[in-house]
């Protein structure tokens, strides 16, 4: 019998540090598969965030750099400007990229920085124990919005990929989800495309992935998936939000 599914070469043997059922791990695996399929493990430098994915450096077989909370894209920019022929990607939580690091998200995209950013949107700050994130939905309860996110006090959630898609330097922007086999396959296609866009040197590529946080949502892993579908998907619309002509011709 032949192995038709197993650990991709892009991942080390180190078990993920995520909570049981957390879909962070699925997204990491997809990146590991893409690194292997595009044969770019030896040419890639990843940048990890601060957050639940802060240990990504241990999980991938490529070189990795970790810095301050929210700064992965600035660090990625420094790496790419030094080594323009290498592949550089950042893996960041929604708090990391859409909260403390928003200025880099906007400007990295506007500059058309030839890097790839993967954002994991679980509508909450996971690592620090479930506080409100810029992506927390209206009415959603977190430890810092115990009565539900009040739009008058806390304002509206940010749909970052939608914003990024408006910037000229961003050439590929996709919003995907890690909730079901069908969506996971779509997510992988988007991630792969994003890396191919970088290989072709076309500009900034960005994939936002809807993900669960069973621990801080207070739901079982299975119920978390349903909660994501019922509550996040209507707000954060899935699909390829921006595909420039050059990317289409890839």
């Amino acid at each position: 019998m032949e192995k038709v599914f197993g650990r991709p070469k892009g991942l080390t043997e180190v078990p993920f540090s995520f909570c049981p059922g957390c879909t962070h791990g699925i997204i990491m695996r997809l990146i590991g598969e893409v690194l292997e399929e595009l044969d770019i493990i030896e040419d890639t430098i990843g940048v990890s965030p601060v957050g639940c994915a802060g240990f990504s450096q241990d999980f991938f077989t490529c070189d990795f750099v970790g810095g301050p909370h929210g700064r992965a894209q600035a660090i990625g920019t420094g790496i790419k400007r030094a080594l323009p022929d290498k592949i550089v990607f950042t893996y960041q939580g929604d708090g990391d990229i859409a909260g403390i690091g928003t200025q880099h998200a906007i400007h990295t995209a506007a500059r058309g920085e030839r890097i790839t950013s993967i954002m994991v949107n679980n509508a909450i700050y996971g690592m620090t124990g479930g506080q409100m994130a810029p992506t927390t939905l209206a009415g959603m309860k977190t430890s810092t919005s115990p009565h539900g996110r009040d739009l008058v006090i806390n304002g509206h959630p940010i749909d970052l990929p939608k914003t990024i898609a408006t910037l000229d330097g961003a050439v590929y922007v996709a919003s995907v989800s890690a909730d079901s086999p069908k969506n996971i396959i779509q997510a992988k296609k988007a991630i792969k495309k994003a890396f191919q866009v970088q290989q072709a040197g076309l500009g900034f590529s960005f994939v936002s992935v809807l993900s669960t946080c069973p621990t801080n949502w207070g739901l079982s892993p299975q119920d978390s998936l349903q909660w994501l579908r019922d509550n996040m998907m209507p707000v954060y619309k899935l699909g390829e939000l921006k595909v420039t002509e050059e990317v289409k011709n890839l």
Partner: peptide, 24 residues
């Protein structure tokens, strides 16, 4: 020369570039 979005961006770009052994 890259004019960064702010000084936080600039120092973290330096961080990334220095990781590659480039004089920055």
């Amino acid at each position: 020369v890259l004019q960064a979005e702010d000084e936080i961006g600039a120092i973290n770009m330096c961080y990334g570039a220095a990781c590659t052994g480039t004089r920055v």
